[in-house]
């Protein structure tokens, strides 16, 4: 019998039974699968099947047997099904909006889980409450945005993070155009601006380093002792503290206050785009003056220049000098 078929039959049997079934009874029910061959091989096969059922998150229980209860296995019906969820229309709509947007996050490592979770929500809520919002969100995507390799890497990393296994990366460096091998302890994954970033402790540098998952060329999880972790998570580790959100937040120099002035028609859009990370957004008539805490003026320059003639750097003088030099090159006055 096909393994998927056997596991589903086993789930149906153990979920339906009122009293625990002994291994002998299960063997008898599946004569082809557990009834033939060497005893050890059969026992191992049954162990693997039990592990699969547990890995699916199903409440498989071994009853040890006493005067009230028979010895054997069953799936606890009370703990199997998702209980009803009392979610209001707004809560449902928000979960589905966030969920459907997250499905498209450049090959999210949780894509399949998210599809299943959103369906479970719709089954666990009454069909009247918020059915419209649930219906209005299609979950299928015909063309996934990320490459197959990146999705595989995210999947492997996700498992390695949960199981705390050492990983060997073949990595195409961002700054130096070279491919290196690194042994790392994967601490976590962060999604930022269309990129999944692996936060990991690099053994070579003995420090926390960031790796763009789309630049990982190869990935191998330590095959030794698959069931025991290779490292411990550092106490109090804060994942997002290691990931700068914007290019000007790269730690290139001590923080300085950068002040930019935006003119219409981009003033509103610039305030919306930079506002959440800004120290201050000031209105000057139609214009907006945005102050940022900046640790990389070089990182801020492309953002400033992208607003073209409608943005000007007011402070600090170093940023004004960078902008002047760049504009001179663009004007054809310097070296191209």
């Amino acid at each position: 019998m096909d393994k998927a078929e056997r596991l589903l039959d086993l789930v149906a049997l153990l979920l339906h039974t009122r009293e625990p079934l002994s291994f002998e009874e299960i063997q008898h029910a599946f004569p082809e699968d557990y009834g033939q061959g060497h005893e050890d091989a059969i026992a191992r096969k049954f162990e693997r099947d039990k592990a699969d059922i547990l890995a699916l998150g199903l409440p498989l229980k071994l009853c040890l047997g006493d005067e009230y209860e028979k010895e054997g296995y069953l799936i606890e019906r009370q703990r199997y099904g998702q209980p009803a969820l009392d979610l209001g229309p707004e809560e449902l709509a928000l979960l589905f909006l966030a969920g459907s947007a997250a499905l498209d996050l450049e090959g999210s490592p949780f894509q399949r889980d998210l599809v299943l979770a959103l369906n479970k929500i719709s089954l666990a809520t009454s069909p009247e409450g918020g059915a419209r919002s649930v219906r209005s969100v299609p979950l299928a995507r015909s063309a996934p945005t990320a490459g197959l390799r990146q999705r595989e890497h995210l999947e492997v990393l996700r498992r390695a993070i949960a199981e705390r296994k050492l990983v060997t990366l073949t990595y195409h460096g961002l700054w130096k155009d070279e491919i290196t091998q690194r042994k790392v302890h994967p601490y976590g994954l962060v999604y930022r601006r269309g990129v999944w970033i692996l936060v990991a402790h690099c053994q070579l540098r003995d420090a926390v380093r960031l790796f763009h998952v789309d630049r990982i060329r190869g990935l191998a999880v330590n095959p030794l002792k698959p069931r025991s972790p290779d490292f411990e998570w550092p106490a109090g580790f804060e994942l997002t503290a290691h990931v700068p959100r914007e290019p000007w937040q790269l730690r290139a120099h001590p923080p300085v206050r950068a002040v930019l002035r935006f003119e219409p028609p981009v003033a509103e859009a610039a305030a919306a785009e930079l506002g959440p990370e800004a120290l201050e957004v000031r209105e000057e008539g139609e214009a907006r003056v945005v102050s940022l805490e900046c640790t990389s003026l070089e990182g801020l320059l492309p953002t400033l220049l992208a607003y073209r003639g409608r943005a000007v750097a007011l402070e600090p003088p170093e940023l004004r000098a960078l902008a002047r030099a760049a504009l001179a090159r663009l004007a054809g006055e310097g070296q191209p």
């Binding site: 998150g57 199997y80 099904g81 928000l94 979960l95 969920g99 479970k120 089954l123």
Partner: peptide, 17 residues
């Protein structure tokens, strides 16, 4: 009935949120 949420499914929702 649908099986209960797994830890990974809950994590998927929480990160989306």
């Amino acid at each position: 009935k649908a099986p209960r949420f797994t830890a990974a499914e809950t994590l998927a929702l929480a990160t989306a949120a």
